[in-house]
Nucleic acid binder design. Structure first.
Length: 567
RNA sequence: GUCCCCAUCGUCUAGUGGUCUAGGACUCCGCCCUUUCAAGGCGGCAACACGGGUUCGAGUCCCGUUGGGGACGCCA
């Protein structure tokens, strides 16, 4: 491998689904590597034994692959199309930190040998007490090796098997580094302390592992969230102590919710919790039944009682499903389930902190682009410094626009795939009407979930003839008002419907138009009553499409029902 | 509290000392089209946080204030 090779990495900890913030970090790392002709690698930071899980790892890999953020090196994943991602062509793996213990131990030993690190024996409780005390005295708690520290004795205690952590001796001087996005960043010596590099359980801390791995894997550019900015001096000091190369650093602004709060999975718990409480208050028995075994009663109580607690992903998901909750999208999977297209999410995420700085031919800013464009044009110089809010409305607008531009067949196949995964009961009921459905519903859909949404533009197609509700206002306005009123027009048009052949959009339109002309009425006088009778509301796709989608028999049944119930 | 970072329409942003009476997108509002809705077309509302400098000239440079965010773990 050449020294000049550009290598970027995304290094998530497998503690849950991929968050959109993490997805953006991964995306920018990927784009940076692609634009510079480098390699993008994926590493799993699973040094936290208590919180990491294999399930979460798999979920993250799948989320990334779905977005099209493909890694050149890292854990392997076989795609639906048979291709395989990851692998270890340069021989720098393994890519799970839990499997790289030897390297960390060697680094820690090297530091220990040169008195650049030392064993420390305080327990977590003792440190907590010290921190509390410092806080009460309104001063900062900094761990520094005492002046009278007895190195030999400490080493001997550690060698004797006494439980301890290893702390790195932070240089007693100010540190600075050049950030590619923020510029020069400096930290005063008083801010820095002797941080832990090896935990009591023998695992390295994040700081040690990330530095050792980045060096071993030849990572040239570290692009990560701004929450890591304060960690950088630690990493720089460690690199100097270990004689490592210095990577290029760049820290990305944070992503927020529309209301300015930090985007967090807690938002979902919060929304779910208030929905459950509401349900409990209005009809407890019904809610309990709905929740069923999605969440066991004990956990549910605890979760309801503690505003800060979170339900495990699987339980929250089950709850969402059981109650048909509309939770705020936080994770990539939420948007996939919500019917967003991966390239649209990528486009939108890219705009959160990056902009092409280019105009379209009509003078508008370039902001709609494909992932390939990003891979080619991405530059660190064009990454912004301010935090960005996640505007779901704009994302939805992008998605709708993209869906509308799809040809009907393509839309249909994407919608089919979405149904297979998220709404198996809804798909496959259309048969020969599928193409007509796509043509009518596509331009009215913001997401792939809209066609099957009970309140969506396609709901009338799936409605049961005898069960859907009639909109009161529409009934009053279009069926009961006027002389003759809509009901009378409907009754008269019923004959036309019964005799129409073929029963297709254009013949229906023509028949309705002829009917209106023959009676000397406006098209609206027959179209609107028909809409209300057939869909329950006054808004639907074109009249011909609407009736054809419902089908002759159902249209007749619905007209009859309407005549009966709305008179 | 301490340290670090940030600051253009409600939101995402363009803007790198004069071409800025600040441009685009989303949202919102109006009009047109029209058998409804959606789409589309046209138009509108709306911002350089504040105060000092530097300069012939500041959205653009410097300082301060205010506001926002992040970090302060044997989490990552």
């Amino acid at each position: 491998m050449s020294e000049a090779q550009v290598v970027t990495r995304f290094a998530p900890s497998p503690t849950g689904h991929l968050h959109v913030g993490g997805a953006r970090t991964a995306l920018f790392n990927w784009a940076l590597a692609r634009s510079l002709g480098g390699r993008f690698l994926l590493r799993i930071e699973d040094t936290d034994q208590a919180r990491s899980s294999e399930e979460a790892t798999r979920g993250i890999l799948e989320d990334l692959a779905w977005l099209g953020i493909e890694w050149d090196e890292g854990p392997t994943l076989t795609l639906p199309d048979g291709r395989s991602l990851g692998g270890d062509p340069r021989g720098v793996g393994p890519f799970f930190q839990s499997e790289r213990r030897a390297g960390y131990d060697a680094a820690v030993q090297a530091l220990l040998d040169r008195d650049l690190a030392y064993p420390a024996f305080e327990t977590g409780d003792e440190l907590d007490a010290l921190r509390r005390e410092a806080r009460e005295q309104k001063r900062n708690f900094r761990y520094r090796r005492p002046a009278d520290f007895d190195r030999e004795a400490a080493l001997a205690r550690a060698a004797g098997g006494e439980e301890h952590v290893v702390r790195f001796r932070m240089p007693e001087r100010a540190l600075r580094f050049a950030d590619q996005i923020l510029g020069e960043v400096h930290f005063e010596e008083e801010q820095l302390d002797d941080f832990v590099v090896r935990k009591r359980d023998g695992f390295p801390t994040y700081h040690l592992a990330v530095v050792v791995d980045d060096e071993a894997m030849g990572v040239s550019h570290v692009l990560r969230g701004q929450e890591h900015l304060n960690n950088t001096p630690r990493h720089r000091a460690l690199q100097e102590a270990l004689g490592y190369r210095e990577p290029v650093y760049a820290h990305l602004p944070v992503i927020f919710n529309a209301d300015g709060s930090k985007m967090s999975k807690r938002d979902k718990d919060k929304a779910a919790r208030s929905a459950v409480k509401e349900g409990l208050a209005s009809d407890e028995a019904r809610l309990r039944a709905q929740v069923g075994d999605a969440v066991d009663p004990g956990s549910l109580e605890r979760w309801l009682g503690d505003k800060k607690s979170q339900l495990p992903d699987s339980q929250l998901g089950a709850l969402q499903e059981a109650l048909a909750l509309d939770l705020p999208g936080i994770e990539v999977e939420d948007f996939r389930r919500g019917g967003y297209l991966p390239e649209v999410l990528v486009n939108f995420l890219a705009l959160l902190g990056w902009s092409p700085g280019e105009k379209e031919d009509d003078g508008r800013d370039k902001e709609r682009f494909e992932p390939a464009y990003l891979a080619e044009r991405f530059h660190l110089e064009r990454v912004g410094r301010g935090n960005a809010r996640f505007d779901r409305k704009k994302l939805l607008a992008f998605n709708q626009e993209t869906l509308a531009a799809l040809d009907d067949a393509h839309f249909l196949s994407l919608w089919d795939a979405w149904c297979t995964r998220y709404a198996p009961k809804a798909g496959g009921r259309l048969g020969a009407r599928a193409e007509l459905f796509a043509a009518a519903i596509k331009p009215r859909s913001g997401t792939l979930a809209d066609p099957t949404d009970p309140a969506g533009p396609g709901a009338f197609v799936f409605a049961a003839n005898e069960a859907f509700p009639f909109d009161e206002k529409a009934v009053a306005k279009f069926l009961r008002k006027g002389e003759p009123n809509g009901l009378e027009q409907l009754a008269a048009f019923r004959e036309t419907v019964a005799g129409l052949d073929p029963f297709a959009p254009d013949t229906i339109e023509a028949a309705a138009s002829a009917f209106a002309e023959a009676r000397g009425i406006g098209m609206g006088k027959i179209a609107q009553p028909l809409r209300v009778a057939v869909t329950g509301s006054s808004a639907s796709p074109g009249l011909g499409e609407t009736l054809a989608l419902v089908g002759r028999e159902a249209v007749l049944a619905r007209i009859d029902r309407c005549l009966r119930e709305c008179a």
